[in-house]
Design a protein around this nucleic acid. Sequence first.
RNA 1: UGGGGCGUCGCCAAGCGGUAAGGCACAGGGUUUUGAUCCCUGCAUGCGCAGGUUCGAAUCCUGCCGCCCCAGCCA
Length: 565
Amino acid sequence: MNEQEKRSPGNFIRQIIDQDLLEGKNAGRVHTRFPPEPNGYLHIGHAKSICLNFGIARDYAGGLCNLRFDDTNPHKENVEYVEAIMDDVRWLGFDWGDRLFYASHYFERLHDFAVELIKAGMAYVCDLDAEEVRAYRGTLTEPGKESPYRSRTVEENLDLFGRMRAGEFEDGARVLRARIDMASPNMNMRDPTLYRIRHGVVHHQTGEAWCIYPMYDFTHPISDALEGITHSLCTLEFEDHRPLYDWVLDNISIDCHPQQIEFSRLNLQYTVMSKRKLTQLVDDGYVSDWDDPRMPTIAGLRRRGYTPESIVEFCDRIGITKADNSVEMGILEACIREDLDSTAPRAMAVLHPLKVVIKNFPEGELEELDAPNHPKDEAMGKRKLLFTREIYIDQADFREEAPRKYKRLVSGGEVRLRNAYVIRCDRVIKDAAGEIIELHCSYDPATLGANPEGRKVKGVVHWVSASHGVRAEVRLYDRLFRHPAPDQDKSVASFLEHLNPDCLHTLSHAMVEPSLADAVPGARFQFEREGYFCVDSKESSPDRLVFNRTVTLRDSWARIERQGG
RNA sequence: UGGGGCGUCGCCAAGCGGUAAGGCACAGGGUUUUGAUCCCUGCAUGCGCAGGUUCGAAUCCUGCCGCCCCAGCCA
């Protein structure tokens, strides 16, 4: 079947591209790129950028999007990240074809452009150390001072830069700087560093071939131009860098000049998005790894049970603008609920088992019942349920006395067992401590697929056969932080103080219906009346099933209860 | 306080001089063997504020106010 590809909604960047096309710019080409630094895992904020860049390539005729690793700072980068990033982009459903690039593969050409700048008197080798450079740079309100090395001759600069490359100088001894304007009101234009010396690091791509590494501001515009990028999309904090981006391309001999356009980065409530903080959560063990289901990483969301479609939909819904934003988790959750509601097969799982003995159902007897896998989509088929004398229901579905509006099982009351019979609670069994340990009930054999005669039974509860159910571990996740903007609160010493101590509840005695016994890692289900769950892709096995709760169902009862019933 | 940006409903976001889209959330109601889904209904006389231009302004002009980013040999 040839499905209609979905187009993303318009935004100001697409308007610019439309206009460019109208004016015949770039010979009608549209070419973007997604340029992550491989120094960590991708997060939902990157997904926004991926959807923007690859989405534009998808929606414009002849559009292309490159994947390029911005790997100019070997210190923090490694191949694990490179591979994880490629996995994540692919998983989201995007394809860079044969256009996989590394900024580091341009090192030789970058070097040649640097030499060109030196020869043109536009760059010089500076011997000031880091602290001196800072002091010379001036402040936001005062102009900087020119470096005493600023007027070195071209010959001297060429010689020194060559010796930097040859490894004659130690880390930090010298840098190559652009010669622009120390009095510029834009700090980025006050003779920015172009190259620094880094000995003793093995670059994941170039090994030990280089001991000088180009800076982002020098590398990025050239990499874009070399790849024929037409629109270089980045986040707002690079707005001040645009004059430098343009300066670099205006002062070297290169015939391509991409247009840099900035948009606001995603801020998602109740989590953090900075790579430094995510790295800290992993390194200090606050979460199990980058793919911990509580992490806002693509890998974490995937393991949590999010679908790529739901994340792409989320990115479409939040849009692209230049306004600072603080997006509610509710939007992300609505996206995954919408997707899973139509695609996830239903199943029953009892999270907090309470034994129910159906006294008028024969001991040892087994009744097979049919249950649809989806209430609306018959094509999803049906499965067998095993009804037995002893079953489990959830502790939350029984109360000795009913609060207002409560419509589940109460002493002496009736309730519908989902896909099965109506039962009545005849007796409540407690232990010495007064804890309810068992319910004695009776079922009405006339209520299978039919409403009982002469009375209305409002409640429906899910259940699992006690003898045939399968024990499983269920992990209930909640927001990682209890503060909507944990990294913005200046009143605490660290964002870690806002970590939510209840972000993970592990239930090791849950019981799931027998049909789930052979559920494969990653498989997603709706556990009826509970939420959407997936089989953990890392730790679940046939003899020890582990389910992750992706998201709860909307729960209007919880709201009623909260408001005092 | 220099420079660069941004302010439209609780959140996101259309709007581009012709009289405030949509989504999420929220509140009511209907259907329902998931308190789910689905379906109705409601939800900005007003677009940061104040002036001005215009027959007409969220859109243009002026002046304020507020928020974000920039002083890495990070990206």
